[in-house]
């Protein structure tokens, strides 16, 4: 039985100007194979114009246990959202 091959996470940019979105993963032994496998698996229906592949082991993720301190503080700072402010009627371009 052969060894496990690396898992690569795949990110596809569907249209120029848009961000790359996570599409899933592929197995491959090197980056060229990873790109080809990602292209064959995730862009058969013209879903994208650009592919990024990243070895899964290179991804650093925030921990679910930390989401309290990591994310909640941004939850009560509504003043970061433009909808928080009341604008005078009739004011344009603001």
């Amino acid at each position: 039985m052969s060894e496990n091959t690396d898992v690569w996470e795949v990110f596809i940019q569907s249209k120029n100007g848009l961000p790359h979105k996570h599409a899933g993963s592929v197995h491959a032994t090197d980056k060229e194979m990873a790109l080809q496998n990602a292209r064959d698996l995730y862009t058969r229906r013209k879903e994208g114009s650009s592919i990024w592949v990243v070895k899964a082991t290179n991804i650093v993720a925030s921990q679910a246990e930390d989401s309290d301190s990591f994310f909640d503080p941004s939850d009560d700072k509504m003043y970061r959202h433009p909808t928080f402010y009341t604008m005078p009627d009739g004011a344009k371009n603001i």
């Binding site: 592929v26 197995h27 491959a28 194979m33 080809q36 496998n37 064959d40 698996l41 058969r44």
Partner: peptide
């Protein structure tokens, strides 16, 4: 030899 190659070759 792998599922990935199956897809590639059918492609």
């Amino acid at each position: 030899p792998t599922l990935e190659e199956d897809i590639a070759m059918v492609n």
